[in-house]
Simulated assay, not measured.
Amino acid sequence: MRRYRRYWFSLLLLAGIGVLASRLASPDVMLADLVFEPLYILPLVGFHACYVLAASCAWRLALRGSCGLQVTLMEAVAHVAALNLGKYVPGKVWGMFARGMALGERCGPSEVASATLQEQIALLHAGVVLGAVAAAIVISPAFWLVALGLALLVALTPLWLGLALRLVERMFKRMDGLLSRIADPRSYAKVFLAHVCVWLFLSLSLTVIEPAVLGVEPDLARTCWLILANVVGITVGFFAVFAPGGIGVREAVTTALLLPAMPVEHAVILTVLFRFWLMATELLMSIFLLHPRITRI
């Protein structure tokens, strides 16, 4: 299977290019009267680079904690790129499958599933926590609401994590020894904190695009609205398995949540441009997939 890896990644890349081309041909991207502030390009690239590094570190931590495998940072970046490309194929699992192929014989299918499960649970958990904090600041800045929400989330984590693990135990009977590593508090905490950074840097990329193309000066309340809308939109799009990369679903939810903070035209422009930015950078990251020598750095 190892010799077919490049062809599989190339197929995912073509799928991503096809989706991007279809979005470019859509009438809702006819954007006019936009400003362009080159001053914001550097922070946009910087925040996105931090997002990629945080996602790569989270995957490295998940691999190390669940199956004891150590991979290089550049190899983890390639795995993140594979995951991002695969989401544009309906079903959401093809990127995970490609990532497993990239690991080759170093990790068996059950071990990759173990690391992926911990990663995805921590990703959703971190998104809920960050979204709750942003919502508390925007809707009611009372500190006790934030403290109460975080306390409930932390307290309930073992419950739904245990339910998820029992479900997987029924699906993969040979994973009993690996599931205890997924639920290890130290390992999970590290992956969780890494994903808090993932959500934060990804959302900050969105907040930078607004002043860059709309000329609107950012403030705390507006930034929190953008973080909340981005987290909720991506999470809902994640569960929309029928939509490649959550396209359409994510933008609709994000736009709806942004309406209290900005005009509908600005919300639509912002969400569409953010999608273009993500798709373009995800396609550029495919260089790590098609050039395996880079992943050995």
Rank of each mutant, 00 (worst) to 15 (best):
L163C: 11
A256F: 13
V146L: 14
Q118W: 04
A261W: 06
I182A: 01
W199H: 13
V154Y: 15
I121F: 10
R170P: 02
E169D: 12
V236N: 10
H125G: 00
G246D: 01
F239E: 07
D176P: 00
A147Q: 10
V128C: 07
L220R: 08
G215D: 01
R186K: 13
W225C: 04
A126Y: 02
L152F: 13
V213Y: 11
P185G: 07
S205W: 00
G246M: 02
V236K: 10
L206T: 11
L150I: 15
M171P: 01
A256N: 10
G233C: 07
V213F: 15
A132E: 06
I121V: 15
L259F: 10
A240K: 06
L193D: 05
E251C: 08
L161Y: 10
A243C: 05
V128N: 00
L163W: 15
L202Q: 14
P218R: 01
E251K: 08
A135W: 13
V231C: 06
W160L: 01
A164V: 12
L204F: 12
A155I: 11
L145S: 07
G215F: 03
V208M: 02
A189T: 10
V138Q: 03
A135S: 06
I227K: 01
F172Q: 12
V241R: 05
V231K: 01
L214K: 04
T207E: 06
F172L: 13
V216A: 09
H125V: 09
L202Y: 15
L200H: 07
V133R: 05
P211K: 11
F238G: 03
I227E: 03
G131L: 02
G215M: 03
L206W: 09
E217C: 04
Q120E: 13
G131C: 07
L226N: 08
L193A: 14
M171W: 14
